[in-house]
């Protein structure tokens, strides 16, 4: 015979909520981390395709490895923009809202500068390589353009944050837009580090040595 619903000692009773809990403010941040995870996985696939195609014996001819000057300047711009944004966020924590806004504005300007530079870089590159020249051109431009599209998305998020009426602590969503948009921007920056390393620096190292 089985006992019906035999009494069982509850191992650990949960804490009874005594007072009302504060309003949750971190949903957006969690969602952003997951977005970054899946987007990161997308870039992993793109880079994997890049290396896979590169392995494709004797068909992968990078006669002239991409020139480094623009890419490195762009890297500098983007990385410093991350620091500016970080500074802006620290101002936000100190409740210096104007300074936070200024930091955000400068970041956006730097992002725009990045896009302008990448337009120049495209124009220079385009002279001897296009997406339809060969598989190298295809994957190169696809990765660079995907990244540019992410920069544009990041800029849109930042601009959206800039136009928000107020930054003071709020119980209204989006609770922490500055922080959340910032996370995305840092992610976009880090991806560019990999783009520069894999697409620009490595071919040069292969051809010219250190």
């Amino acid at each position: 015979m089985m006992a019906a619903a035999a009494p069982v000692q509850a191992t650990r009773l949960p804490r009874q909520p005594g007072t009302r809990y504060p309003l949750d403010k971190s949903r957006g941040e969690w969602a952003m981390w997951l977005t970054i995870a899946t987007e990161g996985s997308l870039f992993v696939c793109l880079f994997a395709s890049y290396f896979y195609l590169a392995n494709n014996k004797n068909r992968w001819a990078i006669d002239h490895p991409p020139k480094l000057h623009y890419a490195l300047i762009m890297l500098a711009v983007l990385l410093s923009s991350s620091f500016v944004l970080h500074w802006g966020e620290s101002q936000l924590k100190k409740q210096r809202y104007v300074a936070a806004r200024v930091g955000l504005g400068i970041t956006i300007l730097m992002g725009l500068g990045f896009l302008a530079l990448s337009a120049f870089e495209y124009m220079e590159h385009w002279k001897d390589l296009t997406p339809d020249s060969n598989s190298y051109g295809s994957i190169f431009y696809t990765i660079v353009s995907f990244h540019a599209a992410h920069v544009i998305m990041g800029l849109l998020m930042l601009s959206y944050t800039l136009t928000l009426p107020r930054y003071s602590p709020t119980s209204r969503s989006p609770y922490r837009p500055y922080h959340v948009a910032g996370l995305y921007w840092h992610f976009v920056d880090i991806v560019w580090v990999f783009v520069v390393a894999f697409l620009y620096v490595m071919p040069n190292v292969r051809v010219y040595g250190f």
Binding site: S41, C45, S49, Y52, L53, A61, D132, S135, G137, T142
Partner: peptide, 30 residues
């Protein structure tokens, strides 16, 4: 896992309609 499908489909569409060579063997694709 899903991004791999997205990437594959993006490449496919680019190859089909935009003249790229991810999968076309004659131009170094695979």
């Amino acid at each position: 896992a899903m991004p791999a499908l997205t990437a594959a489909c993006v490449f496919l569409e680019l190859d089909r309609r935009w003249g790229t060579h991810f999968y076309t063997i004659a131009h170094g694709g695979s």
